[in-house]
Design a binder for these strands. Structure first.
Length: 604
RNA sequence: GCCUUUGUAGCUCAGUCGGUAGAGCACACCCUUGGUAAGGGUGAGGUCAUGGGUUCAAUUCCCAUCAUAGGCUCCA
């Protein structure tokens, strides 16, 4: 059962983390007496505190602070609370400008320390004190620092980071120190271990080691180059999805990577996302834009013919590559790039077909994720923030679209949460949030309902009664971006891909040179059955070849020597180190082809 | 874009308190023909990210740029 907010705040762990933040601030103020303190809340897995400091912090500072925190904890200081008037608070924090700002906002009834609006102006404020440190804080805290285990906290586990005051990029940047805190040292070790596991799965490192992709400075950052093994993986996924879509009534289209600027002015993308697009290219008297979205192109295909209600739903699909000038600090391996391919499709439907078609799309995406072993997902329904003016279109249309999405989730019994302000500018959306094996949540596929672009482009169809209604559009991409999705897959599988996705499925390991010919023959036969095979003719002994194939997570190693040649067998060793012994080639072939065709996650 | 970190061979890293560099892996050649997690030898490979500055002298110190990592902000 979900815990209420109050229960979470009262939990021991929450109080340990909150109190640890105060203790860190105390230690930091000893190290940097001229520091200005901002806020220090508990967060998932720990806490942080933001400071304005006279100089950058270094490892030595952090080690000192951590040690000092442990001393303070061992000191057995009580946490005490006191009510103060706004004036007392202002006097106490006279030299702490961020605290003064917080006090003023609380007293004048604007927002609390988290930026949330408060119901009424505060007449009394609370101070919490431990040892020499007092903070403006509403608590709760542990009763005594002894309730914190000094060996279950760390502030050196993560480097200091920059963070804008109140999350506003227009305001000054503070130094944020992250800490982690747990009830027992074992729990902390477990957490640190999980962080290490995540690091080992880093797709940027695995991608390099497994030869999947590379990023060249000369080509440009955020513009990944797919190497053969990565391209095989990607192509396998694309072919599978393409076929699945054809089976579900989608029609392929292909559109160029560039178009006239006016196209995106009509769609609204250009004015709206100007800052994150590559600048327009001037040629003669025209201006062109590298395509930031596929939808306008697909709309022009829709518009190229007179459409009848008989044509709907019309489902146009394309692996369309788009370019966005993402902020440089955002770029990250394959998961955030400047050029990427969307497994895009735009569905043009009659208004009364919307719900049914939307549900079909959602269940198609569910099936796709399930077949990849990504079974832990939920839906996030992104709606319009009523306060914001960044959205286009009328209220009626937004309400209709939002209602359709929620209805679909209900009908499909898909768990969902509604998040205000997460919509696209032209319509509400449903995002698939997927948890990988390390329980990290990623945003993957997205489905959006759109009444606005049909209007902007003035598209219509001829209805049964000879009227000309507008179709509704559904934008959808199960993977989202091939780059990002494969980055996540690499981490999810830790580079150990299911057989059907493995770039190399079988490595032949001939024992001596005289077995090359036999190995080549086996490889040729498997290849003709559609299996991806390599023959290791490198120098070195069998042990080395096995070691290398294991490290590349190649599902099967087929060792062939005199005995195998004589018996016309292959000795099968799997990457799990399980040995299947000598099998007739035909038996092995039957097994692996079956596993590949069924997209099995198993090796036998 | 902003704050902080880092940038030495294809990869992982050592080193130079300022006098132009070294290891392992990988690669090439030779020897070895070995039945389930690294056989041995030799060799090639670096404008020490780039551009400025300080200095008799810069890979080393300073500045800028580019790239990288951790965050913040943003994400159609």
């Amino acid at each position: 059962m979900a815990k209420s907010k109050q229960q979470v705040q009262d939990s021991l762990l929450y109080r340990i983390r909150h109190s640890s933040a105060h203790i860190m601030a105390e230690a930091m103020l000893e190290r940097f007496p001229e520091a200005h303190i901002a806020i220090g809340p508990p967060i998932e897995d720990g806490f942080y505190y933001d400071f304005a400091l006279p100089r950058p912090v270094n490892d030595e500072d952090m080690a000192w602070v951590e040690n000092r925190m442990k001393e303070i904890i061992r000191g057995g200081f009580a946490f005490t609370v006191k009510e103060v008037s706004p004036d007392e608070a202002r006097t106490f924090f006279a030299k702490q400008p961020y605290k003064i700002e917080l006090i003023n906002d609380l007293v004048e009834g604007r927002v609390d320390e988290n930026g949330a609006e408060i119901a009424a102006p505060a007449e009394k404020l609370t101070f919490w004190t431990q040892d020499t440190f007092t903070d403006l804080c509403r608590g709760p805290h542990v009763e005594n620092t002894r309730q914190i285990n000094p060996d279950a906290i760390s502030v050196t586990f993560k480097p200091p980071a920059g963070a804008y005051w109140r999350g506003d990029e227009k305001r000054e940047q503070l130094t944020r120190i992250y800490g982690t805190a747990w009830e027992t040292p074992e729990q902390m070790q477990e957490y640190l271990h999980l962080l290490e596991e995540a690091k080992k799965r880093d797709h940027r490192i695995l991608g390099e080691r497994l030869g999947l992709f590379t990023i060249s400075q000369l080509v440009g950052k955020g513009l990944p180059l797919w190497k053969p093994y990565g391209a095989i993986l990607r192509d396998t996924l694309e072919r599978w999805l393409r076929q699945t879509q054809i089976d579900n009534g989608y029609l392929p289209v292909v559109t160029p990577h560039i178009a006239k600027l006016d196209l995106y002015k009509t769609s609204g993308h250009y004015p709206y996302y100007k800052d994150s697009q590559y600048a327009p290219i001037k040629v003669d008297d025209d201006e062109f834009l590298l395509k930031p979205m596929n939808c306008p192109h697909h709309i022009m295909i829709y518009k190229s013919e007179m459409r009848s209600y008989r044509d709907l739903p019309l489902r146009l699909a394309e692996f369309g590559t788009v370019y966005r000038y993402e902020q440089s600090g955002e770029l990250n391996g394959l998961t955030r790039v400047r050029g990427f391919t969307v497994d895009d499709a735009h569905l043009f439907v009659a208004p009364n077909q919307l719900l049914e078609e939307f549900k079909k799309v959602v269940s198609l995406i569910q099936n796709i994720f399930n077949s990849l072993g990504l079974t832990d997902f939920r839906a996030r329904v992104g709606t319009r923030d009523p306060e914001s003016d960044k959205y286009v279109g009328s209220d009626v249309l937004w309400e209709r679209a939002t209602a359709a999405i929620i209805q679909a989730c209900e009908d499909l019994k898909l768990p969902y949460t509604i998040e205000s302000g997460e919509a696209a500018f032209y319509g509400p959306k449903l995002d698939f949030m997927v948890r990988d094996v390390l329980k990290r949540e990623w945003q993957l596929g997205t489905v959006q309902v759109d009444y606005n672009l049909p209007e902007r482009f003035d598209i219509e169809y001829v209805a049964e009664d000879n009227t000309r209604p507008r179709p509704v559009m559904i934008h959808r991409a199960p993977f989202g971006s091939m780059e990002r999705f494969i980055g996540i897959l690499i981490e999810h599988f830790a580079g150990v891909f299911p057989v059907w996705l493995a770039p190399v499925q079988v490595m032949m390991v001939p024992i001596a040179d005289r077995h090359y010919e036999y190995a080549d023959g086996v490889a040729a036969q498997l290849r003709s059955a559609g299996v991806r095979v390599e023959v290791d003719k490198g120098k070195g002994r069998m042990g080395g070849k096995i070691r290398e194939a294991r490290e590349r997570h190649i599902p099967y190693m087929l060792i062939v020597g005199d005995k195998d040649m004589e018996a016309q067998t292959v000795s099968v060793r799997m990457r799990t180190d399980e040995d299947l012994g000598a099998l007739p080639l035909a038996d092995f072939q039957k097994m692996i082809v079956g596993l590949i065709e069924s997209h099995s996650l198993e090796l036998k």
